[in-house]
Amino acid sequence: MTAPLLEVRGLAKRFGGFVALEGIDLDVTPGERLGLIGPNGSGKSTLVNCVCGTLHNETGTVRFAGEVLDGLPAHRRTHMGLARSFQLPRPFTSLTVADNLRVPLLYTVRRRSLLISSPAELDERCLDLLRQVGLDGKARRRPSDLTQVEMRKLELARAMAAEPKLLIADEAMAGLSHSEIEDIIALLMRLNAQGITIIMIEHIMRAVMRFSQRLAVLVSGRKVADGRPEDVVNNPDVVRAYLGQ
């Protein structure tokens, strides 16, 4: 078995007296497509935030590509190859749509290699990424001109722009139409085929089932199931959590 790309051990997070996450163990192997599901408030986004350094966990360890991430600020984790999209889009509102993608290119990709350096090449990269999510027509617009759906696509494109080893897509498909969901799944599959490991957090079960090779389920801050998608959805604990006690 290959060494995991992401290795979470005994992770816990509290907010005051509220336990958001407790004893989370999670491994993701390189090249894997993992689906992470759970009811609202089950701790999915908190887990993403702890892995990406937006929040800091009190106990437990996160390793990425063999290195311990604990205490590292979020930007260092991004530099190491960990990118995420936010559940509620957080675009840079004063920059154009293309410039939103220029930021990770300037601050993350160019740190790794100085191959892209001319402004023209940067422009081309931005446009290419926008083309992949179907936003190339809006490159010079501001994010405030975009619809909610387009903002989700921009959010995903910005995470892709950082050229990650592991991409965490936090509800990138909420509100999208049937055909748009198909487009995004195809895009993520393509990225995965290029060797990018992907964690998909999603409520749309049809999409998760089609995409995931493995499924992990969080309920009330604990991981209750982890395995092959068809086994997990028939797991009585998972069914109970979703249909209510």
Binding site: S94, L95, R158
Partner: peptide, 16 residues
């Protein structure tokens, strides 16, 4: 500019 707009998103994009 990213700091002015959204620091959390800036960090996620790799901005120190």
């Amino acid at each position: 500019a990213t700091i002015r707009d959204d620091e959390m998103a800036a960090e996620a994009a790799g901005v120190p």
